[in-house]
Structures are given as C-alpha cells and as structure tokens.
Design a protein around this nucleic acid. Structure first.
Lengths: 227, 227
DNA sequence: ACCATAGGTGTACGGCGTACACTCGTCAAG
DNA sequence: CTTGACGAGTGTACGCCGTACACCTATGGT
C-alpha cells in the first residue's frame, strides 16, 4: 500500500460533530481532566491545531460537549399528570448525567447557558405551566429545581440576561423562559437590577424542604425499605 | 538601608496559615482560575517553590482553602426550634459561599471531604437529631440538603467511606456521621456495596419538592411581594 | 565552634492552550 | 489543461502551568 493510498483510505475528513463525539467519548473514558486538545487530537489521528478548524477554542469545545450531552435527555412525555411528566424528564436527565459523570461539573462551569440547555430549561418550564402552575410559581419552582436536582446550579438562571433589553426573538424561541423573565422583571421587589431575587429563591427552596422534613417527622416517617 | 536590613524587616517567615489566607484572598480578588502557585508566590514576595515547604501540592492548597472558608461558617445557635437552628446555620453557610464565589466549585471538585467539611456536616446532622428527627430520617434529610442547598453536592457523602471497615476513632470525632453511616449499612436495600442508595436519595428529594410544589399550586400560592 | 535542620532559591522538565505561517489536495473558472 | 482560490491539516514556537531536585543560608541546640 503506498502512503497515498493509506492517506486516502483513512481520511474521513473530520468535522465538528466527529470532534465533539470523540471529545465526549474521551471524557467518558478517561475523565475530564485527561481531556486536552492534544490528547483529543491524538485520538483522532490528527495534529492538535487541526481541531481549531472546527472549534474556536477549548471553551467552545466544552460548550459543544455540553450541548451534545444535554441533547441526550428524553423529550418530555405527554400526559395529564404534570408531576409524572416532570419526574420522568428529570430522571432521564439524571440518567444522562450518570452516563457522563464529568458533565455536571462542566455544565456548571460554563459562563452562559448553551442553546441545548436553554431549550431543556424552556421545555421544563413549559411542563410546569401546562400542569397549571402560575408563571410566578413556575418561576420559583424552576429555581428550586435548579438547586441541583436538575443537574444545573442556580447561577445558570441569572446569567441568562444581565445585559440591557432582552433580545427580541429570544422570546419566540424560548417563550416560557421569556415569560419567567417577565414576571421577575415587573415585580420590582428587593433587587435593584433586572435580575431575580436570589435570596428569596434560596429561602423559598429551603423553607419548602424544611416544611417537608417537619411533616415527615410529625408523621413518624420511615424509609420502609424491604430489608 | 542595607540589603540585609531590608531582608530582615520583610521576613515574617511565611507559614501555612499565611499561605492559605493569601490564597483565599487572591481567589476572592482575581477568581479561582487566576490562582496559580506562581501567582500566589509572587503575591507573597517569594519564589514559587517556597510554597511547597508549606503545602504538599496544589490539591492540598485547595483543600486548605476549603477548610479555611468552611471554618467561617457560624456555629449552630442553640434553641428549641430545630428549623430555626438549621435555617440560620445554612444561611450563614450561604453568606460564606457568597463571600467566596469560587468556593462552591472548589468544594465540589475535592475528591474527599476535608476535616472542616466533615465537622460542618456532622454538626448539621446533630441539629436534625436534636430536633427529634430519627437517624434514618436525618440520613435522607442530609442527602436532600446536599442537593446544593448546603452548598455541597451529593457525591460528597458517598466519598466518605468507600474503603473497607470504617476507621475507629472517626466515630468518636464525628458521632452523627457515624450514626448515619450505620443506618445506611444495616438496611441492606438495593445497593450491593456498603454505600447509600443514591437513586433513592435523589427521588426522596425530588418527590418532597414536587409534593411541596403541588401543595402550593392547590393553595393558589403567590409570592406576595410588596410591589 | 560545630553541625543539623528548616525555610527559601534556581534551574529544568514535560504538558498545556493556541498564535501564526505553511503546505497540499480539491475544484471552479478561464 | 491551466490556474488560482480556498479549506483542511501541518509544524514551529511562545508563554503559562505544576513541580522534581539540587542547592544555599540563617538559626539554634550541643
């Protein structure tokens, strides 16, 4: 086999998707700390700088990996019981994050939410709204779920729009998020800026859990596992 | 001023505490990504390798920083109302983590819990026990709180003892944690190893929140802020 | 007066992300 | 068929990182 033939057969010319998939696979196999541009390039049989024709830099690579992983989460089921719908979706998200143990930390390390994350959050908010929760309640409920159960940390929400007037068209793409942002904006409570009252959100979740715990305590709750 | 005098006056010979405090201050001021051994050494007017006489490596430096920060959390107040006690303590922890925005991520990135974190968790568990919650319920409640509200992620708990028989003496130092570990061990449910049933803990929290949300919804809950 | 020791130094290595200039294969226009 | 633009992959190089290792030097106990 001549070198040219060898070259010709192995060229499958490498596109952004192949790069992202290889990156996810490498992170799954060897951990996120072992994922370097150089190592990834080697895995793809290519020189490190070749990757930069497909991703701008490592940050964008990580963004792409996050989107790939979040894209694995099942779409919401349909049904009349909103708790069932939300529960199933979140358990699907949890399964995805268990498949990619590095993902939760990477998601939390992103400075701004990526499109797939926004879409996921938007559709989740939609499930609450469809279940009959008010936009107001949905807003706080989303914050509460952000307390790790969604896999995403709190700050993710705030980062969505710190700059000036909201991008029109964003409301069209993510209607539920836009609705939540609106409710946050027009109840000009304790915060000065346009953002959410983080302190309120935190205490909302905290008190909800504490009351729940107290109820369980009063009922003499026990985990009742089959021993 | 001779060089010797200059040397003598500026020598405050640098100990582990000064290193840790400088590291925390540097991370507070410039962000955790800008905290490098070289930069920190420069801040202390010293050559990079000098730091290694006081911390074994960067991981241990980060451990030390975590302990320093967690040590800032107020001790639990005393009082008959356990919800008040826990609430106050957690809000203190939150204030600390807001003062050191890098800390939450660093804490979650540690592979094993540091002594101050263990002490904090132990004393928190003690507050629940003192409030009358059973050891069993306290166990799950701690997991639920670990869902970000404590500032620490879930996995922190599991890491506490994956290896063999538990260290005797640890039970003496952290009695409540030992108690929780015991309840986890002897209800040999769905898990094979000695650890917790993560799935159960996750769903426990999830269902608690969901039921809380549904109750709020039924009551037509509204955030009732003074507009 | 001696020397062990603890704290600080200097040099060096391998790995990282990536800027920049290049080569080379492909393909459309002349 | 020639040409030349262009996109994909290359090679070299820079500055940062953590840290191993050998060295110096002041201090304090004998």
């Amino acid at each position: 086999m001549t070198p040219q033939e060898a070259t010709r057969t192995q060229r499958i010319p490498l596109n952004r998707d192949r790069v992202l998939r290889a990156a996810v696979a490498l992170a799954d196999a060897t951990g996120i700390d072992a994922l370097s541009m150089r190592r990834l390039a080697q895995e793809l049989g290519v020189v490190p700088m070749a990757l930069y024709k497909h991703v701008a830099n490592k940050e964008e690579l990580l963004d792409g990996m996050v989107d790939a992983v979040v894209g694995e989460i099942d779409p919401p089921a349909s049904g009349p019981d909103w708790q069932r719908v939300v529960r199933g979706r979140i358990l699907s998200a949890r399964r995805v994050l268990l498949r990619h143990p590095w993902a939760a930390r990477v998601i939390e390390s992103r400075t701004g939410p990526t499109p797939a994350v926004l879409a996921y959050l938007d559709s989740m908010a939609g499930s609450f709204r469809d279940g009959g929760l008010s936009a107001d309640l949905t807003h706080h409920v989303m914050h509460a779920m952000g307390s790790r159960l969604l896999g995403f940390s709190q700050e993710l929400f705030d980062a969505s729009g710190p700059s000036g007037p909201p991008d029109p068209g964003l409301a069209a793409r993510y209607p539920h998020i836009a609705e939540l942002a609106a409710t946050a904006a027009h109840d000009g409570g304790s915060t000065v800026g346009g953002g959410c009252d983080d302190q309120f959100e935190f205490e909302f979740t905290l008190d909800l859990l504490l009351d729940g715990f107290e109820n369980l305590r009063r009922q003499g709750w026990t985990s009742a596992r089959k021993a």
